[in-house]
Design a protein around this nucleic acid. Structure first.
Length: 501
RNA sequence: GGCCCCAUCGUCUAGAGGCCUAGGACACCGGCUUUUCAUGCCGGCAACACGGGUUCGACUCCCGUUGGGGUCACCA
Protein backbone atom coordinates (compact mmCIF):
# COMPACT_ATOMS: atom_id res chain seq x y z
CA UNK A 1 0.00 0.00 0.00
CA UNK A 2 1.14 3.51 -0.61
CA UNK A 3 2.53 4.67 2.67
CA UNK A 4 0.79 8.01 2.65
CA UNK A 5 -2.52 6.20 2.49
CA UNK A 6 -2.16 5.02 6.05
CA UNK A 7 -4.27 7.14 8.34
CA UNK A 8 -5.12 5.89 11.79
CA UNK A 9 -6.71 7.51 14.77
CA UNK A 10 -7.01 7.35 18.50
CA UNK A 11 -10.43 8.52 19.62
CA UNK A 12 -10.82 8.81 23.38
CA UNK A 13 -13.77 10.19 25.26
CA UNK A 14 -12.99 13.04 27.59
CA UNK A 15 -14.03 11.26 30.77
CA UNK A 16 -10.85 11.59 32.81
CA UNK A 17 -7.25 10.58 32.64
CA UNK A 18 -5.94 8.30 29.92
CA UNK A 19 -6.50 4.68 30.92
CA UNK A 20 -3.59 2.31 30.41
CA UNK A 21 -5.72 0.24 28.03
CA UNK A 22 -6.38 3.38 26.02
CA UNK A 23 -2.68 4.07 26.03
CA UNK A 24 -2.06 0.65 24.52
CA UNK A 25 -4.61 1.36 21.77
CA UNK A 26 -3.02 4.76 21.15
CA UNK A 27 0.42 3.17 21.10
CA UNK A 28 -0.50 0.51 18.54
CA UNK A 29 -2.08 3.09 16.28
CA UNK A 30 0.93 5.34 16.66
CA UNK A 31 3.31 2.47 15.93
CA UNK A 32 1.33 1.48 12.88
CA UNK A 33 1.34 5.03 11.56
CA UNK A 34 5.03 5.54 12.20
CA UNK A 35 5.96 2.18 10.73
CA UNK A 36 4.21 3.04 7.49
CA UNK A 37 5.04 6.70 7.45
CA UNK A 38 1.34 7.39 7.80
CA UNK A 39 -0.72 9.84 9.79
CA UNK A 40 -1.82 9.53 13.38
CA UNK A 41 -4.97 11.45 14.17
CA UNK A 42 -6.28 12.33 17.61
CA UNK A 43 -10.03 12.79 17.75
CA UNK A 44 -12.08 13.63 20.80
CA UNK A 45 -15.37 11.76 21.05
CA UNK A 46 -17.38 14.12 23.20
CA UNK A 47 -20.94 13.39 22.15
CA UNK A 48 -22.16 12.56 25.63
CA UNK A 49 -22.30 15.84 27.42
CA UNK A 50 -23.39 14.23 30.67
CA UNK A 51 -20.20 12.22 30.93
CA UNK A 52 -17.90 15.01 30.03
CA UNK A 53 -15.24 15.66 32.67
CA UNK A 54 -13.70 19.08 32.57
CA UNK A 55 -10.01 19.31 31.83
CA UNK A 56 -9.89 15.76 30.64
CA UNK A 57 -8.83 16.68 27.12
CA UNK A 58 -5.83 18.42 28.61
CA UNK A 59 -5.21 15.44 30.84
CA UNK A 60 -5.31 13.05 27.92
CA UNK A 61 -3.07 15.14 25.68
CA UNK A 62 -0.72 15.61 28.60
CA UNK A 63 -0.49 11.90 29.18
CA UNK A 64 0.06 11.20 25.49
CA UNK A 65 2.85 13.75 25.39
CA UNK A 66 4.43 12.32 28.49
CA UNK A 67 4.42 8.95 26.77
CA UNK A 68 5.97 10.50 23.71
CA UNK A 69 3.07 9.66 21.40
CA UNK A 70 2.70 12.69 19.19
CA UNK A 71 -0.25 13.14 16.86
CA UNK A 72 -0.14 14.63 13.39
CA UNK A 73 -3.68 15.94 13.36
CA UNK A 74 -5.99 16.76 16.21
CA UNK A 75 -6.45 19.14 19.10
CA UNK A 76 -3.76 21.79 19.39
CA UNK A 77 -2.10 20.81 16.13
CA UNK A 78 -5.02 21.10 13.74
CA UNK A 79 -5.16 19.43 10.35
CA UNK A 80 -7.26 19.61 7.22
CA UNK A 81 -9.76 16.94 8.29
CA UNK A 82 -10.96 18.81 11.35
CA UNK A 83 -12.52 19.87 13.52
CA UNK A 84 -11.27 17.08 15.75
CA UNK A 85 -13.86 17.45 18.46
CA UNK A 86 -17.08 15.67 17.63
CA UNK A 87 -19.02 18.33 19.46
CA UNK A 88 -17.93 20.72 16.72
CA UNK A 89 -19.04 18.46 13.91
CA UNK A 90 -22.77 18.34 14.55
CA UNK A 91 -23.67 19.82 11.17
CA UNK A 92 -21.68 17.12 9.44
CA UNK A 93 -23.58 14.41 11.24
CA UNK A 94 -27.04 15.78 10.53
CA UNK A 95 -26.12 16.10 6.89
CA UNK A 96 -25.42 12.37 6.81
CA UNK A 97 -28.47 11.58 8.92
CA UNK A 98 -30.62 13.39 6.42
CA UNK A 99 -29.17 11.38 3.58
CA UNK A 100 -30.17 8.21 5.38
CA UNK A 101 -33.63 9.57 6.14
CA UNK A 102 -34.11 10.46 2.49
CA UNK A 103 -32.92 7.14 1.20
CA UNK A 104 -35.17 5.33 3.66
CA UNK A 105 -32.23 3.72 5.47
CA UNK A 106 -33.16 5.49 8.68
CA UNK A 107 -36.41 6.39 10.37
CA UNK A 108 -37.78 8.25 13.34
CA UNK A 109 -38.51 6.17 16.42
CA UNK A 110 -40.95 7.39 19.04
CA UNK A 111 -40.36 5.16 22.07
CA UNK A 112 -39.25 6.87 25.22
CA UNK A 113 -36.28 5.56 27.18
CA UNK A 114 -38.73 4.42 29.86
CA UNK A 115 -40.78 2.40 27.40
CA UNK A 116 -37.64 0.81 26.05
CA UNK A 117 -36.43 -0.04 29.53
CA UNK A 118 -39.78 -1.61 30.39
CA UNK A 119 -39.68 -3.71 27.24
CA UNK A 120 -36.19 -4.87 28.05
CA UNK A 121 -37.17 -5.74 31.57
CA UNK A 122 -40.14 -7.83 30.62
CA UNK A 123 -38.09 -9.56 27.98
CA UNK A 124 -35.43 -10.33 30.56
CA UNK A 125 -37.99 -11.72 33.01
CA UNK A 126 -39.18 -14.07 30.30
CA UNK A 127 -35.57 -15.01 29.66
CA UNK A 128 -35.65 -13.99 26.06
CA UNK A 129 -33.50 -11.35 24.51
CA UNK A 130 -35.07 -8.20 23.25
CA UNK A 131 -34.61 -7.16 19.71
CA UNK A 132 -36.01 -3.80 18.75
CA UNK A 133 -39.10 -4.39 16.64
CA UNK A 134 -39.16 -2.17 13.61
CA UNK A 135 -42.55 -0.39 13.45
CA UNK A 136 -44.79 -1.28 10.57
CA UNK A 137 -45.59 0.94 8.94
CA UNK A 138 -42.64 3.21 9.59
CA UNK A 139 -43.47 6.75 10.65
CA UNK A 140 -42.87 9.17 7.82
CA UNK A 141 -40.22 11.81 8.06
CA UNK A 142 -42.97 14.41 8.32
CA UNK A 143 -44.51 12.58 11.26
CA UNK A 144 -41.17 12.29 12.95
CA UNK A 145 -40.43 15.95 12.51
CA UNK A 146 -43.86 16.85 13.81
CA UNK A 147 -43.41 14.66 16.88
CA UNK A 148 -40.10 16.26 17.57
CA UNK A 149 -41.62 19.67 17.08
CA UNK A 150 -44.28 18.91 19.64
CA UNK A 151 -41.65 18.11 22.22
CA UNK A 152 -41.79 14.33 22.15
CA UNK A 153 -38.39 12.78 22.44
CA UNK A 154 -37.72 11.10 19.15
CA UNK A 155 -34.65 9.28 18.02
CA UNK A 156 -33.50 8.26 14.62
CA UNK A 157 -32.73 4.63 14.04
CA UNK A 158 -30.77 2.99 11.29
CA UNK A 159 -32.60 0.36 9.31
CA UNK A 160 -30.34 -2.63 9.59
CA UNK A 161 -30.06 -4.45 6.26
CA UNK A 162 -31.71 -7.83 5.90
CA UNK A 163 -28.51 -9.80 5.53
CA UNK A 164 -25.63 -11.24 7.51
CA UNK A 165 -22.68 -8.93 8.04
CA UNK A 166 -19.12 -10.10 7.72
CA UNK A 167 -16.35 -8.21 9.46
CA UNK A 168 -12.97 -8.89 7.95
CA UNK A 169 -10.62 -8.37 10.81
CA UNK A 170 -6.88 -8.22 10.37
CA UNK A 171 -6.19 -10.16 13.54
CA UNK A 172 -9.36 -12.23 13.98
CA UNK A 173 -10.10 -13.09 10.39
CA UNK A 174 -13.62 -13.12 8.96
CA UNK A 175 -16.30 -12.81 11.62
CA UNK A 176 -19.85 -13.37 10.43
CA UNK A 177 -22.76 -11.98 12.38
CA UNK A 178 -26.18 -13.36 11.49
CA UNK A 179 -28.80 -10.89 10.38
CA UNK A 180 -31.15 -11.87 13.21
CA UNK A 181 -28.54 -10.85 15.77
CA UNK A 182 -28.59 -7.29 14.56
CA UNK A 183 -31.25 -4.72 15.28
CA UNK A 184 -32.12 -1.23 14.19
CA UNK A 185 -29.98 0.93 16.45
CA UNK A 186 -30.15 4.58 17.36
CA UNK A 187 -27.96 6.88 15.33
CA UNK A 188 -29.32 10.16 16.61
CA UNK A 189 -30.35 10.68 20.19
CA UNK A 190 -33.42 12.65 21.16
CA UNK A 191 -31.23 15.60 22.02
CA UNK A 192 -30.21 15.74 18.40
CA UNK A 193 -26.67 14.52 18.97
CA UNK A 194 -25.30 11.52 17.12
CA UNK A 195 -24.61 8.29 18.94
CA UNK A 196 -21.09 6.94 19.11
CA UNK A 197 -21.67 4.51 16.26
CA UNK A 198 -22.80 7.16 13.88
CA UNK A 199 -20.29 9.83 14.72
CA UNK A 200 -17.52 7.29 14.60
CA UNK A 201 -18.46 6.00 11.14
CA UNK A 202 -18.96 9.45 9.69
CA UNK A 203 -15.70 10.74 11.11
CA UNK A 204 -13.64 7.76 10.09
CA UNK A 205 -14.88 8.27 6.55
CA UNK A 206 -14.54 12.04 6.45
CA UNK A 207 -11.13 11.87 8.08
CA UNK A 208 -10.11 9.25 5.54
CA UNK A 209 -9.14 6.73 8.20
CA UNK A 210 -7.62 3.69 6.51
CA UNK A 211 -7.15 1.36 9.47
CA UNK A 212 -9.01 1.09 12.73
CA UNK A 213 -7.02 -0.52 15.54
CA UNK A 214 -9.17 -0.72 18.65
CA UNK A 215 -9.93 -2.97 21.59
CA UNK A 216 -11.73 -6.25 21.09
CA UNK A 217 -14.63 -4.94 23.16
CA UNK A 218 -15.60 -3.10 19.98
CA UNK A 219 -15.86 -6.23 17.86
CA UNK A 220 -19.63 -6.48 18.15
CA UNK A 221 -19.98 -2.81 17.25
CA UNK A 222 -18.25 -3.35 13.99
CA UNK A 223 -21.11 -4.99 12.06
CA UNK A 224 -23.16 -1.90 12.82
CA UNK A 225 -20.40 0.28 11.49
CA UNK A 226 -19.93 -1.82 8.41
CA UNK A 227 -23.65 -1.71 7.64
CA UNK A 228 -23.68 2.04 8.12
CA UNK A 229 -20.72 2.46 5.82
CA UNK A 230 -22.49 0.47 3.11
CA UNK A 231 -25.65 2.55 3.40
CA UNK A 232 -23.71 5.80 3.29
CA UNK A 233 -21.53 4.68 0.43
CA UNK A 234 -18.37 4.93 2.49
CA UNK A 235 -15.47 2.62 2.01
CA UNK A 236 -14.78 0.21 4.85
CA UNK A 237 -11.54 0.81 6.72
CA UNK A 238 -9.43 -2.20 7.62
CA UNK A 239 -10.21 -3.30 11.15
CA UNK A 240 -7.87 -4.83 13.67
CA UNK A 241 -9.34 -5.70 17.06
CA UNK A 242 -6.76 -5.80 19.79
CA UNK A 243 -6.81 -8.26 22.70
CA UNK A 244 -7.97 -6.79 25.98
CA UNK A 245 -5.72 -6.18 28.96
CA UNK A 246 -6.78 -7.39 32.38
CA UNK A 247 -5.50 -7.27 35.92
CA UNK A 248 -3.28 -10.14 36.94
CA UNK A 249 -6.26 -11.80 38.66
CA UNK A 250 -8.31 -11.64 35.48
CA UNK A 251 -10.56 -8.78 36.53
CA UNK A 252 -10.98 -5.67 34.47
CA UNK A 253 -8.47 -2.89 34.98
CA UNK A 254 -10.91 -0.38 36.28
CA UNK A 255 -10.50 3.06 37.74
CA UNK A 256 -12.65 1.80 40.56
CA UNK A 257 -9.87 -0.58 41.59
CA UNK A 258 -8.18 2.39 43.14
CA UNK A 259 -11.09 3.24 45.43
CA UNK A 260 -11.54 -0.40 46.33
CA UNK A 261 -7.90 -0.75 47.36
CA UNK A 262 -8.04 2.46 49.35
CA UNK A 263 -11.07 1.18 51.21
CA UNK A 264 -9.18 -1.93 52.18
CA UNK A 265 -6.24 0.16 53.28
CA UNK A 266 -4.10 -1.10 50.42
CA UNK A 267 -2.00 1.08 48.15
CA UNK A 268 -4.05 1.94 45.04
CA UNK A 269 -2.94 0.15 41.88
CA UNK A 270 -1.87 2.18 38.89
CA UNK A 271 -4.65 2.22 36.30
CA UNK A 272 -4.36 5.48 34.40
CA UNK A 273 -1.21 6.54 32.62
CA UNK A 274 -1.00 9.38 35.06
CA UNK A 275 -0.86 6.91 37.95
CA UNK A 276 2.26 5.34 36.49
CA UNK A 277 3.77 8.72 35.99
CA UNK A 278 3.06 9.68 39.58
CA UNK A 279 4.34 6.32 40.80
CA UNK A 280 7.74 7.05 39.33
CA UNK A 281 7.84 4.99 36.16
CA UNK A 282 9.70 5.97 33.03
CA UNK A 283 7.43 6.30 29.99
CA UNK A 284 10.00 4.37 27.95
CA UNK A 285 9.53 1.37 30.24
CA UNK A 286 5.75 1.60 30.35
CA UNK A 287 5.55 1.85 26.58
CA UNK A 288 7.99 -0.98 26.06
CA UNK A 289 6.03 -3.13 28.46
CA UNK A 290 2.57 -2.50 27.04
CA UNK A 291 3.81 -2.85 23.48
CA UNK A 292 4.44 -6.49 24.37
CA UNK A 293 0.88 -7.06 25.54
CA UNK A 294 -0.75 -8.64 22.54
CA UNK A 295 2.14 -8.10 20.22
CA UNK A 296 5.79 -9.07 19.97
CA UNK A 297 8.43 -8.81 17.31
CA UNK A 298 9.13 -12.54 17.30
CA UNK A 299 12.09 -14.38 18.73
CA UNK A 300 13.40 -13.36 22.13
CA UNK A 301 13.50 -9.63 21.59
CA UNK A 302 12.01 -7.71 24.49
CA UNK A 303 13.70 -4.47 25.33
CA UNK A 304 13.23 -1.91 22.57
CA UNK A 305 13.04 1.82 22.24
CA UNK A 306 9.88 3.35 20.85
CA UNK A 307 11.57 3.92 17.51
CA UNK A 308 12.84 0.37 17.36
CA UNK A 309 9.37 -0.88 18.15
CA UNK A 310 7.90 1.24 15.38
CA UNK A 311 10.41 -0.20 12.97
CA UNK A 312 9.50 -3.73 13.96
CA UNK A 313 5.77 -3.25 14.31
CA UNK A 314 3.42 -5.32 12.23
CA UNK A 315 -0.29 -6.02 12.50
CA UNK A 316 0.43 -9.62 11.46
CA UNK A 317 2.09 -10.18 14.78
CA UNK A 318 -0.78 -8.95 16.91
CA UNK A 319 -2.14 -11.82 18.96
CA UNK A 320 -5.77 -12.65 19.53
CA UNK A 321 -5.65 -13.84 23.14
CA UNK A 322 -6.29 -11.44 26.01
CA UNK A 323 -3.38 -10.52 28.22
CA UNK A 324 -2.84 -9.85 31.90
CA UNK A 325 -0.97 -6.85 33.14
CA UNK A 326 1.91 -8.11 35.28
CA UNK A 327 3.16 -5.23 37.40
CA UNK A 328 6.20 -7.19 38.56
CA UNK A 329 7.42 -7.42 35.02
CA UNK A 330 6.78 -3.74 34.49
CA UNK A 331 8.92 -2.96 37.52
CA UNK A 332 11.68 -5.16 36.11
CA UNK A 333 11.48 -3.33 32.79
CA UNK A 334 11.56 -0.03 34.58
CA UNK A 335 14.63 -1.04 36.56
CA UNK A 336 16.42 -1.96 33.37
CA UNK A 337 15.39 1.24 31.66
CA UNK A 338 16.58 3.32 34.58
CA UNK A 339 19.95 1.66 34.26
CA UNK A 340 20.30 2.19 30.53
CA UNK A 341 18.97 5.71 30.15
CA UNK A 342 21.32 8.72 30.11
CA UNK A 343 21.99 10.79 33.23
CA UNK A 344 20.20 13.74 31.66
CA UNK A 345 17.14 11.69 30.84
CA UNK A 346 17.14 10.26 34.32
CA UNK A 347 17.32 13.68 35.88
CA UNK A 348 14.48 14.98 33.71
CA UNK A 349 12.41 11.95 34.68
CA UNK A 350 13.08 12.42 38.37
CA UNK A 351 12.18 16.09 38.19
CA UNK A 352 8.97 15.29 36.35
CA UNK A 353 8.15 12.74 39.03
CA UNK A 354 8.82 15.30 41.74
CA UNK A 355 6.78 17.94 39.97
CA UNK A 356 3.79 15.69 39.40
CA UNK A 357 3.81 14.73 43.07
CA UNK A 358 4.75 18.15 44.30
CA UNK A 359 7.40 16.29 46.25
CA UNK A 360 9.94 17.67 48.68
CA UNK A 361 12.58 16.54 46.20
CA UNK A 362 11.67 19.66 44.26
CA UNK A 363 13.76 21.75 46.65
CA UNK A 364 16.99 19.97 45.71
CA UNK A 365 19.35 21.31 43.10
CA UNK A 366 19.99 19.54 39.81
CA UNK A 367 23.45 18.70 41.08
CA UNK A 368 22.13 17.12 44.23
CA UNK A 369 19.52 15.19 42.25
CA UNK A 370 22.11 13.99 39.77
CA UNK A 371 24.36 12.85 42.58
CA UNK A 372 21.44 11.07 44.22
CA UNK A 373 20.61 9.30 40.98
CA UNK A 374 24.18 8.25 40.48
CA UNK A 375 24.65 6.80 43.94
CA UNK A 376 21.29 5.06 43.80
CA UNK A 377 21.96 2.99 40.70
CA UNK A 378 19.96 -0.17 40.75
CA UNK A 379 16.81 1.68 41.79
CA UNK A 380 13.51 0.47 40.44
CA UNK A 381 11.32 3.53 40.25
CA UNK A 382 11.74 7.18 41.13
CA UNK A 383 9.71 6.45 44.22
CA UNK A 384 12.73 4.53 45.50
CA UNK A 385 14.84 7.62 45.09
CA UNK A 386 12.32 9.65 46.97
CA UNK A 387 12.45 7.15 49.79
CA UNK A 388 16.20 7.21 49.89
CA UNK A 389 16.38 10.98 49.75
CA UNK A 390 13.85 11.99 52.35
CA UNK A 391 16.64 12.36 54.91
CA UNK A 392 18.11 15.06 52.71
CA UNK A 393 15.10 17.31 52.67
CA UNK A 394 14.30 16.87 56.34
CA UNK A 395 15.86 19.50 58.65
CA UNK A 396 18.55 18.15 60.96
CA UNK A 397 16.44 18.56 64.07
CA UNK A 398 13.38 16.95 62.53
CA UNK A 399 14.84 13.58 61.65
CA UNK A 400 12.53 10.90 62.94
CA UNK A 401 14.25 7.80 64.16
CA UNK A 402 12.69 4.55 63.12
CA UNK A 403 12.29 2.70 66.44
CA UNK A 404 13.10 -0.62 64.84
CA UNK A 405 16.29 0.74 63.33
CA UNK A 406 17.32 2.29 66.61
CA UNK A 407 16.72 -0.92 68.48
CA UNK A 408 18.49 -3.11 66.00
CA UNK A 409 21.43 -0.94 65.07
CA UNK A 410 22.04 1.44 67.95
CA UNK A 411 20.66 0.02 71.17
CA UNK A 412 21.37 -3.66 70.58
CA UNK A 413 24.22 -5.30 72.53
CA UNK A 414 24.31 -2.75 75.29
CA UNK A 415 24.15 0.31 73.11
CA UNK A 416 27.01 -0.89 70.96
CA UNK A 417 25.86 1.33 68.13
CA UNK A 418 25.77 4.40 70.31
CA UNK A 419 29.22 3.58 71.59
CA UNK A 420 30.43 3.36 68.02
CA UNK A 421 28.99 6.78 67.29
CA UNK A 422 30.74 8.25 70.34
CA UNK A 423 34.05 6.89 69.20
CA UNK A 424 33.44 8.17 65.68
CA UNK A 425 32.81 11.74 66.75
CA UNK A 426 36.47 12.68 67.14
CA UNK A 427 37.89 11.15 63.95
CA UNK A 428 34.99 12.43 61.90
CA UNK A 429 35.38 15.92 63.29
CA UNK A 430 39.06 15.75 62.42
CA UNK A 431 38.36 14.85 58.80
CA UNK A 432 39.27 17.87 56.73
CA UNK A 433 38.43 16.65 53.27
CA UNK A 434 34.79 15.59 53.53
CA UNK A 435 34.73 13.40 50.43
CA UNK A 436 33.93 9.74 49.78
CA UNK A 437 37.56 8.58 49.55
CA UNK A 438 38.89 10.02 52.82
CA UNK A 439 35.76 8.91 54.63
CA UNK A 440 36.13 5.44 53.24
CA UNK A 441 39.77 5.37 54.30
CA UNK A 442 38.78 6.48 57.76
CA UNK A 443 36.04 3.92 58.26
CA UNK A 444 37.79 0.95 56.69
CA UNK A 445 40.93 1.81 58.61
CA UNK A 446 38.94 1.82 61.80
CA UNK A 447 37.42 -1.54 60.96
CA UNK A 448 40.78 -3.06 60.19
CA UNK A 449 42.44 -1.92 63.39
CA UNK A 450 39.51 -2.99 65.54
CA UNK A 451 38.84 -6.19 63.70
CA UNK A 452 35.19 -5.37 63.00
CA UNK A 453 33.02 -5.46 59.93
CA UNK A 454 32.14 -2.34 58.03
CA UNK A 455 28.49 -2.89 58.80
CA UNK A 456 29.16 -2.34 62.48
CA UNK A 457 30.32 1.19 61.64
CA UNK A 458 28.23 2.06 58.61
CA UNK A 459 24.85 1.09 60.01
CA UNK A 460 25.01 3.13 63.23
CA UNK A 461 26.15 6.07 61.18
CA UNK A 462 23.39 5.58 58.68
CA UNK A 463 20.71 5.42 61.32
CA UNK A 464 22.14 8.41 63.17
CA UNK A 465 22.24 10.52 60.06
CA UNK A 466 19.05 9.40 58.26
CA UNK A 467 16.89 7.87 60.94
CA UNK A 468 16.56 4.65 58.99
CA UNK A 469 18.54 1.65 57.84
CA UNK A 470 18.05 2.51 54.17
CA UNK A 471 20.02 5.18 52.36
CA UNK A 472 22.57 5.56 49.58
CA UNK A 473 26.03 4.15 50.30
CA UNK A 474 27.23 5.53 53.61
CA UNK A 475 30.10 7.67 52.26
CA UNK A 476 27.78 9.26 49.71
CA UNK A 477 25.14 9.75 52.32
CA UNK A 478 27.59 11.66 54.50
CA UNK A 479 29.02 13.65 51.65
CA UNK A 480 25.75 14.71 50.12
CA UNK A 481 24.61 15.84 53.55
CA UNK A 482 27.82 17.70 54.26
CA UNK A 483 30.05 17.61 57.30
CA UNK A 484 28.18 20.06 59.44
CA UNK A 485 24.77 18.53 58.99
CA UNK A 486 26.16 15.03 59.42
CA UNK A 487 27.85 15.96 62.70
CA UNK A 488 24.70 17.73 63.91
CA UNK A 489 22.68 14.64 63.33
CA UNK A 490 25.11 12.29 64.99
CA UNK A 491 25.23 14.52 68.05
CA UNK A 492 21.46 14.77 68.10
CA UNK A 493 21.10 11.02 67.91
CA UNK A 494 23.34 10.70 70.93
CA UNK A 495 21.44 13.36 72.83
CA UNK A 496 18.09 11.73 72.10
CA UNK A 497 19.41 8.50 73.46
CA UNK A 498 20.33 10.19 76.73
CA UNK A 499 16.90 11.78 76.82
CA UNK A 500 15.17 8.42 76.51
CA UNK A 501 17.58 6.47 78.67
C1' G B 1 -28.83 -16.92 28.59
C1' G B 2 -28.17 -15.65 22.85
C1' C B 3 -24.27 -14.25 19.69
C1' C B 4 -19.01 -13.51 19.02
C1' C B 5 -13.74 -14.05 20.26
C1' C B 6 -9.91 -16.83 22.60
C1' A B 7 -6.85 -21.16 24.77
C1' U B 8 1.78 -23.02 25.27
C1' C B 9 5.16 -22.49 32.20
C1' G B 10 1.89 -18.53 37.84
C1' U B 11 2.41 -14.07 34.03
C1' C B 12 3.95 -11.92 28.99
C1' U B 13 5.22 -14.89 25.09
C1' A B 14 8.58 -17.79 20.94
C1' G B 15 6.76 -21.69 18.00
C1' A B 16 3.80 -20.98 10.82
C1' G B 17 3.45 -30.34 10.56
C1' G B 18 9.22 -33.24 11.62
C1' C B 19 14.17 -28.01 13.99
C1' C B 20 10.59 -29.46 20.69
C1' U B 21 14.51 -33.39 25.40
C1' A B 22 8.97 -27.03 23.81
C1' G B 23 13.01 -21.46 23.85
C1' G B 24 13.21 -16.38 26.22
C1' A B 25 11.63 -12.73 29.88
C1' C B 26 9.19 -11.64 34.70
C1' A B 27 7.82 -13.91 39.18
C1' C B 28 9.29 -17.88 42.47
C1' C B 29 13.24 -21.13 44.90
C1' G B 30 18.60 -21.85 45.91
C1' G B 31 23.68 -19.86 45.81
C1' C B 32 27.40 -15.85 45.07
C1' U B 33 28.65 -10.46 45.36
C1' U B 34 27.46 -6.39 48.76
C1' U B 35 28.29 -1.08 54.42
C1' U B 36 21.78 -0.75 54.24
C1' C B 37 17.94 -0.97 50.53
C1' A B 38 18.19 -2.12 45.64
C1' U B 39 21.16 -3.88 41.81
C1' G B 40 24.43 -7.54 39.51
C1' C B 41 26.01 -12.75 38.61
C1' C B 42 25.18 -18.24 38.64
C1' G B 43 21.85 -22.30 39.03
C1' G B 44 16.89 -24.47 39.60
C1' C B 45 11.45 -25.19 39.37
C1' A B 46 7.67 -24.62 35.81
C1' A B 47 3.38 -25.21 30.18
C1' C B 48 1.37 -27.30 24.82
C1' A B 49 -6.75 -27.51 28.83
C1' C B 50 -9.31 -32.27 27.47
C1' G B 51 -11.31 -35.75 23.73
C1' G B 52 -11.73 -37.17 18.88
C1' G B 53 -10.08 -36.97 13.94
C1' U B 54 -6.48 -35.72 9.42
C1' U B 55 -1.28 -37.31 8.62
C1' C B 56 4.17 -41.66 8.10
C1' G B 57 4.37 -37.68 11.89
C1' A B 58 0.84 -32.86 15.43
C1' C B 59 1.99 -27.55 20.22
C1' U B 60 1.19 -26.51 15.18
C1' C B 61 -4.61 -28.40 10.65
C1' C B 62 -10.20 -29.86 11.44
C1' C B 63 -14.37 -31.03 14.87
C1' G B 64 -16.28 -31.35 19.71
C1' U B 65 -15.98 -30.60 25.10
C1' U B 66 -14.40 -27.66 28.95
C1' G B 67 -12.65 -23.11 30.57
C1' G B 68 -11.87 -17.80 30.08
C1' G B 69 -13.31 -13.20 27.87
C1' G B 70 -16.33 -9.71 25.05
C1' U B 71 -21.16 -7.98 23.79
C1' C B 72 -26.34 -7.52 24.06
C1' A B 73 -28.06 1.36 26.02
C1' C B 74 -30.98 7.52 23.36
C1' C B 75 -22.34 5.24 26.99
C1' A B 76 -18.31 5.50 24.27
Amino acid sequence: MASDDVRVRFAPSPTGYLHVGGARTALFNWLFARHHGGTFVLRIEDTDRSRHVSDSVAKITDDLRWLGLDWDEGPEVGGDAGPYFQSERLALYSEQTNRLLESGDAYFAMESPEELAAMRESAASEKRSLRYARPDPLPTVAEGLAARESGCGVTIRFKMPDRDIVVNDLVLGAVRIAQEELEDFVIQKSDGWPTYHFACVVDDALMRISHVLRGQEHLMNTPKHVALQAALGFSVPAYAHLPIIFNIDGSKMSKRDKEKALKKGLPPPEIDVHDFRAAGYLPEALLNFISLLGWNPGGDREEMTLDETAGLFSVDRIGSANAKFDRDKLVAFNTDWNARVSAERSLAGLKDFAAVNDAALLSLSDDALTYLLRVSQGFRTFRDIEGKASFLVTPDDAIEYDPKAVKKVLAKNDDAGYAMLESLLGPLEATGDWAPEPLEALLTGLCASNGIKLGAVAQPLRVAVTGSTVSPPIYDTLVILGKERSMNRIRRALELRRATA
